[in-house]
Amino acid sequence: MNAGNVMRRLFVSAWMALVFITVIWIATTQIRSPFFPPLPIVLTSFSNTWFGAGFMEHVVPSMINLGAGLAAALALGLGLGVALASFPLANALVNPYAQFLRALPGVALLPLMLMLMGTNDGSKITLIAFGALWPILLNTIDGIRSIAPEQRDSARAYRVTPFNVVFRVLLPGAFPRITVGIRLSISIALVLMVGSEYYGATHGIGFYVLQAKQTFKTADMWSGVLLLGLIGYVLTTAYSAIERRILRWRPTDDR
């Protein structure tokens, strides 16, 4: 592919976003509404806050909670998933409860978490992990059960050791399903991260946005919303890339 072609494709995929930004730019500078400060001011606030003190004070704690919660959910979900998939009776017994817990809106548990564990980071991480756990767990179980019996048989016939069965047969074989759960869990974790920072918090991006709103610093508020959007976009895009790499073995990307 030549350079001109690349430029054209870039243009096709970006022009609408550029128009969108331009329209917002012009609109916000024209209407002079206190709710919609001009875009340049929002961007200034963005760079001042998020490339300044705000990074260490709010972004880092938020990201640590998100990462720790997601990591815990992933480890627990995969581990419990493998265990439950190996014991059909245990799975049959526990599954309805897992379905129920998945259906609970994680945010509704915020007051509960606050009560049980206080407003520290531990309670936030627990909440994020709790919310993100169920999609991973349930999809891991489904994924393992969807592996062809012939594949399990051939692992058994060759006396493949338990470690290798888990890490080279069950988890990779279940991954096309597991990844559906992980994608869901990432967005749930983001929601819970933000939610937990609205409800009894002293730092974090969500806290910053809410405080900016309460003190009527609308430019700061919008810059926080913009940052949350960017984080969401970067996380999802990065995960898609990881997923494509792991699923290289599949004939076609049938999504």
């Binding site: 967005s187 933000v194 939610g195 609205y198 949350l228 959007g229 976009y233």
Partner: peptide
Amino acid sequence: TIPPLALIP
């Protein structure tokens, strides 16, 4: 990909 609750404020 904007987290839904981010828009609450």
